[in-house]
Design a protein around this nucleic acid. Sequence first.
DNA 1: CTGAAAGCGCTTACAG
DNA 2: CTGAAAGCGCTTACAG
Lengths: 355, 355
Amino acid sequence: MAAKTTGGRGRASRGKPTSSDVAAAAGVSRSAVSFAFNRPDYISEATRDRILAVAQEIGYVPNTLARMLKAGQTNALGVLLPQSLAKIMENPYYARFLMGVGQVCDHEGLTMVLTPPLRDSMLKAIPYAAVDGFIVCGLETDRGEVAELARHRIPFVLVDSDPQEDVPSVDVDDHGGALAVMRHLLGLGHRRLAVLSIDPGPDKAVRGYRGPLARRMAGIVEALAEVGLTLDDVALAEVPVTRTDGYRATKTLIRQASPTAIVALSDVLAFGAVDALHDLGIAVPGQVSVTGFDDLVEAAWLRPRLTTVRQAIATKGRTAADFLISAIREEDQHPHQLLGTSLMIRESSGPVPAG
Amino acid sequence: MAAKTTGGRGRASRGKPTSSDVAAAAGVSRSAVSFAFNRPDYISEATRDRILAVAQEIGYVPNTLARMLKAGQTNALGVLLPQSLAKIMENPYYARFLMGVGQVCDHEGLTMVLTPPLRDSMLKAIPYAAVDGFIVCGLETDRGEVAELARHRIPFVLVDSDPQEDVPSVDVDDHGGALAVMRHLLGLGHRRLAVLSIDPGPDKAVRGYRGPLARRMAGIVEALAEVGLTLDDVALAEVPVTRTDGYRATKTLIRQASPTAIVALSDVLAFGAVDALHDLGIAVPGQVSVTGFDDLVEAAWLRPRLTTVRQAIATKGRTAADFLISAIREEDQHPHQLLGTSLMIRESSGPVPAG
DNA sequence: CTGAAAGCGCTTACAG
DNA sequence: CTGAAAGCGCTTACAG
């Protein structure tokens, strides 16, 4: 601990100067100091200048925390993430999503607070960050957090989740996207398919798929049914969304199922798949087609260019931030936005190879 | 504004419940409530359980702001960024850097607050976010902010900057990196070079290059001198660090200077350059070599794989976070870390074409 | 094991 | 235009 000079309440005291220090040094009351910063019109310009000069000199700036406490707002938007900060920043999907959120924050003069999953050690006393509300992200969410947030009357919006009646939410037409990409592949004649899917987390066994993953799987099942197939007819791998995991899983899928097409449920996984196929000497799309989901900026850079399902990720972030701001202002609506998806047919998918 | 029931200090009051509400409902004092959350050993288990149950029931959770104010710390690390949040999240370099910072935050149980450049409208009353300290990032920094932070005794560390004696800092051997990549290209016989550089910002005219850019330029000049050239002998474009800007600038450079090698001072710019050359039908490295700087993860995905200067970006973030934590704890050291760079020779650079 | 009191640093009616 | 006072919601010695 730092040594603290006790009795020093004057400017001689160690630590950050407070409004009292400024008041003493400028020979005015603390309110005058406050007015100098917040209500220029309440005091004479001369006094204000003097106070500000003194403040500048002794290095005073109003304590943000105290200000926030008084005001009852923080001017910060929280983003409650489904994974560790390190993992999130590694995932281009989130970079893009946070870009959207960031645009709104920039525009509204808000800061952005990134919060990793709540430590569920003590679900009672969640140490919420100092924010005005949360954007709750991600496939793996809505365990206890959502109920907790609602109970504590903290404004929030759900993203990539299972929409709830009375909570604002932003989602994407995952079902339609998955359906479209599957029909594309099936239309090209592919029947030996592998689905490179996203790890649904530990409680899938208990509760089945949820959120976007559930919708995407439903789209896949629907498309399969159209040609008389079921999920049992495709190879399935479920892995964390990293390029490395996509790479490894692809090698396994190829070995075990020798599919003619790999349907990745995320572009990042598709990147890994293309890499793996390249390293295996398998031509894309000559021998194996690969499709993604998301249409990250990087998807168009890849060679071959990736066929994928586009979703407007930045728009999703922007919309979520807008909805949150409305919720914070207690404009008591509960808007639900469903953004469209569209199939981007590029170079990584082609007709099933002859034979 | 929300309607506020005035005199209601009981649990009937609107808005979030406070410790008084819990105390009243549980028939104990406010301190007891506080103890239930913070000092389990100060009260009986039975009482604690009762208080916690009541808290849970009425949806009470201690106000974070008040807590922080009392404690004098926020458990949040601020990252002061050189650009708007939207731009930052668009740049893979920052994604990687923030990943490093995130790793430390994850480990230490800290949250991460992203702060765009301070609005210099009112340099006196900068509305600092509620954080324990700042990691100050970026080429364009150290205008007024650094002096302000120091004046206000806010702990901070400088990253990618011009190190100062008494401020912790983390930098990279930009000079060595630039020197190495230039020697590589010159060694391959290239003499008609174009440098695709980073926009130094508005006050370059006044103060010249600073920070990493200054060091990289110095490395370039040194390498040029070794073969009897000067900066006047190379084409130079200075643009914002986006793939699009790299793309456009490359087209211009090719038209105006027809270089045999393009030295990009950032991988993101190099990505754009490779794209532009591809679209122009110019072979890389057959006709034009391209090099980058950073060695982003994506650099190895590119085809041809990008020759570039590797810097340990995530480590930089991690080190910066560690230094900041030390500074916050007032372990009064001012460590300076200089991380190495290394030249990654891959496929995008080759010998100067004959003729 | 509990309760009244002070205080973290600020802002804001309110009376002068 | 200024100053004393209350209060934002919490925590923490302190005396019981």
